[in-house]
Amino acid sequence: MMTLKFRLIMAAILLIGFVIIINMVRKKSLDLRYALIWLALIAMILVIVIVPGLLGVITHFIGIYDAMNMVFFMGFVFLIVVTFFLTAALSRNSNRIKALTQQVALLEKQVRDEAVKVSLKDEASSEDAERRI
């Protein structure tokens, strides 16, 4: 079904993707935690590309007529699942940011109030000193 040429092109693309992901993890611009799902996807596609006839076996096993239909369907499901978990992660993060923002603002207020108190005290004591002189 897949020509050797196509298999080689796919393998090359997957290899490039793998290198990019590892490099991003190394530079800490991608969390390993989130990289795992993409690495798993690459591994899965790689197995399908390398093992001849595997795609046909899976397609037949699930009960889909055409291999391409299954590829599109699986890709679609995968993207929906990833997006769903992204929105969950986003909700969690926005709640964390909200709590942090509130704490920072309340602390900043306390610091500002203390500073005002100290400066008032300083003024009062310097006036005292002037009076004594």
Partner: peptide, 27 residues
């Protein structure tokens, strides 16, 4: 004017702002 103010460093929207007021009230 020396108003009593809590100033959020990030825009939270009305709910988050009002909640900050309740946290202030609680504390």
């Amino acid at each position: 004017n020396n108003f009593n103010m809590v100033s959020l460093p990030v825009n939270l929207g009305i709910g988050g702002a009002v909640q900050t007021g309740y946290i202030y009230a609680r504390d």
